[in-house]
Each structure stands twice: as structure tokens, then as C-alpha cells.
Computed example of a mutant assay.
Amino acid sequence: MPGERGSTMLGVLCGAAAGALWGLVFLAPELARAFGPLELTIGRYLAYGLISAALITPRWRTVSASIGGAEWRALFWLGLAGNTLYYVLLASAVQLGGAAITALVIGFLPVVVTIVGSRAEGAVPLARLAPSLLLCGAGTACIGWQALFLPSARPVAAQLAGLLCALGALASWGAFAVGNNHMLARVRTVSSHDWSLLIGIATGAQSLLLIPLALLLGTRGHGAGEWALFVAVSAGVAIFASIVGNALWNKMSRLLPLTLAGQMITFETLFALLYAFAWEHRGPTVAEALAFVLVVASVVSCVAAHRRPGMAKEIKASTGLRP
């Protein structure tokens, strides 16, 4: 039906926009390289928490009335899995192994989330999603070809450590994507934007707990210019990636089933590479250009699988949307 197609396309657009903003986080560790992963995490999420608290204050009484102890525990866990722990691991992976190999590993998120989502009641069968998953896997392999097989100036030990951190980030954010999807279906009295702000408050509280750890580990001195750049990067990533990006992702999560929502994560990898090309002042190689084609074809294939006759009721059932 036209309304259902419109909801699907709106969901895809929201997912693409979220990916465009999330791709910025791959540049942040390079922009503020004078600071370690823990410091970058504290800066980003302290800003996210403060901005979230300011934005939700006018509606606090109404929103808090819908949130109980179980929801707050879920918010704390989601903030840890999707933000605090994830970003520590991601920033470590970028600084140790490089942005390209990190993007490669994170690029497998669509496969992980889609496979998990296919087990939900009423979800599109995994066999129907096989072409999309194969295209996604092929595109991801192309993206990481150069990072894996060409000589690198980075030590082998650092690349291995970066790869392990990227795998940890993959597992952490995969758990967040699934858990957040379930919670959005459960707390429908809270808007997707306000839910993102609540996660921001929980994450901001976690960043405060990390400050003593950062002081204990010790940090080298920084100049005024480095601190100014750190504050600008932290605030920019908090506003665009965390506030706006998360709100768009939550909006998409209420419009699309998890099997389709998982494919939207692919846009983060694509935009991360576009930003990396701009940062490195170069265009894509043949392998990277092929990756773009394959990944876009993966998303289109997944959308087509969800729009086949008879799938409307299954999509409604898996997202919790009213018919």
C-alpha cells in the first residue's frame, strides 16, 4: 500500500541520514589525535549528556512519568553498549589499526543485526535476505581489501590490537542495536527523540564515572589549541552524531523491522569512507568504488525483500506498528 511504502522509504532515508552523521565518529580520533580513546569518550558523552539534559528539561515531568526502574536499567545498559564501551573500543581501533580496517569490521554490523533480527516472530525469512547479505559481505570485503593486504606503516602488533578492539566494538554495538529496537517497541509512550535524549543522560552519567579512571591512568599536558580542538570535536560529534543521528536512528527503528534496520548500518561505513577520502585528499580506488555499488545494491535488495507481496503483515508484526 502507498502508506506502507512511504513509511519504508522514510525509514530508509532516516537510516541513511543517521549513517551520514555517524560516519563522523571515525574522523574524530584522527582530528583530536593528541587525546586518548578514554579522553575522547569522556568529552563526547559528557557533552551528549549535558545537551540531552538541557533539551529534555521542558518535558521532564511528562517523560519521567513513563520511565520506571526497569527502563532506567535498560537505558544504562544501552548507554554502555551503544555509546561508552563502543566508542572506547572504536577510538582505540582507529588509532591503533587505522580507520579503514575499523570501518571494515564495523561494516559487518548489518549482517550480524539482520541475522539476529531474522529470528524474531513474523520477520522476513533469512533465506529471502540471502542475496542482500551476500552483497553486503562482498562490499565489505572490497572496502577492507587494501587495509588487509597492502603494506602498512603501522606495527603488526598495533594492527592486531586495533582489529581486536574493532571486533569488540562490533559485538558491543550489535547488542545495542537489538536491545534498543526491543525497548523502542516496549516504551511507545516516549518519542524516539526523547528516548535518545534519555540514553544521552545515562551515557553522560557514565562519562562522569570515567573521569577518576582517566586521572588515575594519567594524561599528558595539552596546549590551549589542543584543548580548543578537543572541545570543538567533542561538542560537534555529540550534537551531530549522538543527538541528531541517534534521533534519526530511533525514528527509523520504529518504521522498519530489525531485518531491514540492520542493513541501514551500512550507510555509516559508506559515509565513513567518504569522509576518509576527503581527509586524505584522494578519490576511491577501483575496489572501493565497487564496494559502494555492492553495498547500495545490498540495501536495495533488502528493501525489495520486505516489499514483496504478503510481507506487509510480517513487517507490521515485527515492528509493532498498528495496521
Rank of each mutant, 00 (worst) to 15 (best):
I101E: 08
T102G: 10
A103D: 10
A103V: 15
A103Q: 14
L104G: 06
L104A: 06
V105M: 12
V105S: 08
I106V: 15
V111R: 08
V111D: 00
V113G: 01
V116Q: 12
V116M: 14
G117Q: 04
G117K: 09
S118Q: 05
R119K: 15
E121W: 09
E121H: 14
G122D: 10
V124H: 01
P125I: 04
L126V: 09
A127F: 12
R128Q: 13
P131K: 03
S132T: 08
L133H: 10
L133V: 08
L133F: 05
L135V: 01
C142N: 02
W145C: 12
F149Y: 03
L150R: 14
P151N: 08
S152T: 03
S152C: 03
R154L: 12
R154Y: 03
R154Q: 15
V156Q: 00
V156G: 00
V156E: 12
A158K: 13
A158I: 02
Q159I: 00
Q159Y: 02
L160N: 01
G162C: 00
L163I: 09
L163E: 03
C165W: 01
A166F: 05
A166R: 01
L167G: 10
G168S: 07
A169C: 09
L170I: 14
L170S: 03
A171K: 14
A175H: 15
F176T: 05
A177Y: 13
A177L: 14
V178T: 14
V178S: 05
